[in-house]
């Protein structure tokens, strides 16, 4: 296939859009790992709960309510999950954490399949986000007719806004300052009289809430079926590893990198299937802590 400017633009947009979903899921994963030190393999299942909630609310009451309700519900769910289960594993081995969260993911997935069936549930895109955008109207360097689905471009914007909000929260607020300090040295923070456990609970809820946002906007793109969570978990986890465990910036760069790699290798099935793993291997060989990983973390 010729690499014209039109084709190149489509490749880039597709890469950005694929990367957006990875970034949104990896953001929650890496936030939870960075603060709590927990490898949360149930994060894909949180996304799954989000898309099922979103599609149910969207199809019954409209997209507006889905957008208002799903992220807070996921926040509460995340908090309950942290209090009920995850906190008991803070002092345990990473393998124990992985086993319990992976087990939870399977239970949640089968539960959703039991309730909603294994078949896909169509997610109707709201009218304002439906249809395609005539890119050639906005980008003069494109020749002829070049279009892209509006919803996927909205997803990219949502992803950028969410990333910016999380960065702002962590770097511009007092809450963020405490969290970042807690990430450095939780024990010292407790000595200073800060209830770091309560804040970590909120961080877990926040990670879960980002999965909620991803579910509301990503549902129509990834579709709503019980397998989706697991399918997204592996690439998202690799995004976290490539970016550096616990690094938000790393997750963003790695997410886009993986998205681009998938987009540009699409015509070549053999490469397309393994490209994520290939990139992971190369990066871990060259830089074991990941692109922006902190020294000594998972190195």
């Amino acid at each position: 296939m010729d690499m014209t400017l039109n084709a190149f633009t489509l490749y880039i947009l597709t890469g950005l859009q694929l990367g957006s979903i990875f970034v949104l899921i990896a953001l929650g994963l890496t936030l939870i790992f960075g603060t709590l030190g927990v490898v949360n393999f149930a994060h894909g299942a949180l996304y799954l709960i989000a898309i099922y909630l979103a599609v149910s609310i969207n199809n019954a009451l409209g997209f507006g309510l889905a957008l208002i309700l799903v992220p807070p519900i996921l926040f509460v769910f995340g908090v309950l999950m942290e209090r009920g289960l995850i906190q008991r594993f803070y002092d345990r081995e990473h393998t124990d954490q992985i086993l319990v969260t992976f087990g939870l993911a399977i239970v949640l997935q089968e539960l959703l399949k039991w309730v909603f069936g294994a078949n896909n549930i169509p997610f109707a895109i709201p009218s304002w986000g439906n249809g395609i955008l005539m890119l050639h109207d906005y980008l003069p360097f494109l020749e002829g007719f070049v279009v892209y689905p509006k919803w996927r471009l909205i997803l990219v914007v949502v992803s950028i806004v969410t990333v910016a909000a999380v960065f702002a929260l962590l770097h511009l607020t007092r809450f963020g300052l405490v969290i970042r300090a807690g990430m450095r040295d939780a024990e010292m923070m407790q000595f200073l009289g800060v209830n770091i456990n309560r804040r970590f609970m909120i961080v877990f809820g926040l990670g879960s809430m980002i999965a909620g946002i991803a579910g509301v906007f990503g549902g129509p793109v990834t579709q709503v079926s019980p397998e989706v969570g697991m399918h997204l978990l592996v690439p998202s986890f690799l995004v976290v590893v490539i970016g550096g465990m616990g690094s938000l910036g790393g997750a963003v760069i790695a997410g886009i990198l993986i998205g681009m790699a998938q987009s540009f290798t699409a015509p070549y099935i053999n490469l397309n299937t393994v490209i994520i793993y290939l990139i992971t291997v190369v990066i871990l060989l060259v830089r074991p802590r990941g692109l922006l990983g902190a020294k000594g973390v998972f190195e």
């Binding site: 296939m1 014209t4 039109n6 084709a7 489509l10 490749y11 947009l13 597709t14 859009q17 694929l18 979903i21 070049v146 279009v147 689905p149 996927r152 793109v221 990834t222 579709q223 079926s225 397998e227 989706v228 399918h231 997204l232 998938q262 987009s263 699409a266 015509p267 099935i269 397309n272 299937t273």
Partner: peptide, 21 residues
Amino acid sequence: GNIMTPLKTTDFSQYLSQVLN
């Protein structure tokens, strides 16, 4: 053209871009 897509694909946008093009 023909593109083989992995069985576990849930988002086909990368392949559909090829069709558009």
